Amino acid sequence: MHCLSTAIPDVMILEPQVFRDERGFFMEVFHEEKFAALGLPTRFVQDNHSASRRGVLRGLHYQVRQAQGKLVRVIIGEVFDVAVDLRRSSPTFGQWVGELLSADTPRMMWIPAGFAHGFLVLSEWAEVLYKTTDFYAPQWERTLLWNDPAIGIRWLLQPGEEPRLSEKDRRGLPLAQCETYP
């Protein structure tokens, strides 16, 4: 497992070793000892799978209690995956990092607890799998406004293109009004 840093040091890109031959490929997505050696969590309690069409933007979601660390990967298509630091004590509070994740490039993004997370689907169809370090708790879920100018995420939208959003994501709050972490 190869680990790459991002502009926010706690968010990491993981590249598993891929073994390819004429039959296809094999890779380890999670290995407890390798994750521990990288200082990453080794306990995940929930696996999630989402599927979306081109232009769908999901997020930016987080939980104010039962905060979830997420290990995100794409198994079909391509997304622009984004994490926003919501930890007030962090030197990168309010900053964001985004990475292309694709089924063609078996990279994963580690997003620790304390971050809002979302993604924009760039391909016709994408399927995203992610492991979480805590359970989904709808009573603690919050939504950070996807296009808050105070954060300034440069989503990979075409000029004039509007993302497809759920009603919950349309009603997200700007950072100045959001509940955040200590």
Rank of each mutant, 00 (worst) to 15 (best):
L120E: 05
G77I: 12
I151Y: 07
S102T: 10
K70S: 05
L57F: 09
T133R: 03
G152F: 08
T143A: 13
E127N: 04
Y136D: 12
I111F: 00
L101R: 01
V84A: 02
G152D: 09
P112C: 05
G59I: 02
G77E: 08
Y62F: 14
L156A: 15
L145N: 00
G118P: 02
P149W: 08
S90I: 04
L100D: 05
W96T: 01
Q66F: 08
I75C: 07
R142W: 00
W125T: 15
L57I: 11
Y62N: 05
D148R: 06
R58D: 04
R73M: 13
F93E: 11
G98T: 06
A103Y: 05
K131N: 14
A137Y: 09
R73K: 10
M109F: 01
E162S: 15
G94K: 07
L71T: 09
L144C: 06
Y62Q: 07
L60N: 07
V56K: 04
V56S: 05
I153K: 05
L129E: 13
F119A: 00
I151F: 01
L122H: 11
E78L: 00
A83S: 09
L101T: 06
Q139T: 08
A113F: 01
L129N: 13
E99S: 13
L101G: 02
L100I: 14
Q68A: 09
A137S: 13
Y136G: 11
W146D: 05
E161L: 15
I76E: 11
I151E: 14
I111C: 04
T132Q: 11
K70Y: 06
R87I: 10
A113S: 14
Q139E: 15
I111S: 00
V79S: 04
V56L: 12
H61F: 14
V121H: 10
S89M: 11
L120P: 09
F119K: 00
D85R: 02
D85I: 02
T143S: 13
G77A: 08
G98E: 01
V74G: 01
G69H: 08
W155Q: 14
D104S: 15
T92P: 04
D85C: 06
D148K: 11
P106I: 13
D81Q: 06
L144R: 05
G118C: 04
